[in-house]
């Protein structure tokens, strides 16, 4: 039997679809990790990004931090944290949050910065307070780019959570790591395909959100 038909066979098995090791359960786990991680990262990065974008302060530091994290190998980070903290969710989630913060931070501050300074100046001259400028001018106008940051962070986390299976994290990566350990290529391939589809769907969802936020005004402007 070829690998392809074995993989189709794997997908058609009922055990693939039920129980703790079934696709629905793994999918929910994977989405759960993603939501949790992006959520925590957003709590840190969104206020900080808004502050940096609005005031221009700390931006050098943010750029340096972003660059430094980018150079860190994700697998190294995951395994290191796992040995430091031990088994459980803490190590992988911490590593995932660390990796999700930079794209999110960059998205938020570049979104705010992308707003024409003359528009901001005019809003200030009309008598808007700094908070009003942020919430009524900078965030709505930069929203598409801010969502772009959430989009990259989500993709980063979906991909890295897959790798996290190596240090015992659940989710769809389990199929790849477990399949590898038992030389079950069809299972690895099946799991990989599910991850790819998930990534494409999530990316598509963010893309739609982004295009909804770039309303009439921006289209005409460019």
């Amino acid at each position: 039997m070829s690998v392809l038909s074995e993989t189709i066979d794997w997908f058609s098995r009922s055990s693939t679809w039920s129980g703790n090791d079934g696709i629905p359960h793994r999918l929910v786990e994977h989405l759960g990790y993603t939501a949790l991680t992006v959520g925590i990262a957003a709590v840190v990065a969104v206020p900080l990004g808004l502050y940096i974008g609005h005031t221009g302060r700390l931006r050098g530091l943010a750029v340096a931090f972003t660059g430094a994290v980018r150079a860190l190998p994700t697998l190294g980070l995951l395994t290191w944290f796992a040995l430091l903290v031990g088994l459980g969710l803490t190590a992988p989630i911490t590593a995932l949050v660390l990796l999700a913060v930079p794209p999110l931070l960059a998205g938020v501050y570049s979104g705010v910065e992308s707003v024409d300074q003359r528009t901001v100046d005019a809003a200030r001259a009309q008598g808007m307070t700094e908070i009003q400028i942020l919430t009524r001018v900078e965030v709505p106008l930069g929203l598409s780019i801010i969502l772009g940051g959430l989009r990259s962070a989500t993709l980063q986390v979906v991909a890295t959570a897959t790798v996290g299976a190596f240090i015992g994290l659940g989710g769809l990566g389990r199929y790849i790591i477990d399949g590898q350990r038992s030389s079950d290529y069809p299972q690895m391939l099946g799991g990989s395909l599910v991850v790819v589809v998930l990534a494409l769907l999530l990316d598509g969802a963010w893309a739609i959100a982004q295009s909804l936020t770039s309303g009439r005004h921006t289209r005409v402007l460019v």
């Binding site: 750029v63 972003t66 893309a207």
Partner: peptide, 17 residues
């Protein structure tokens, strides 16, 4: 960096895929 992390498709013009 900003361009990289926001992955291009989302430049202010919004030609997001």
């Amino acid at each position: 960096w900003a361009a990289f992390f926001t992955r291009g498709g989302v430049s202010a013009g919004g030609d997001a895929l």
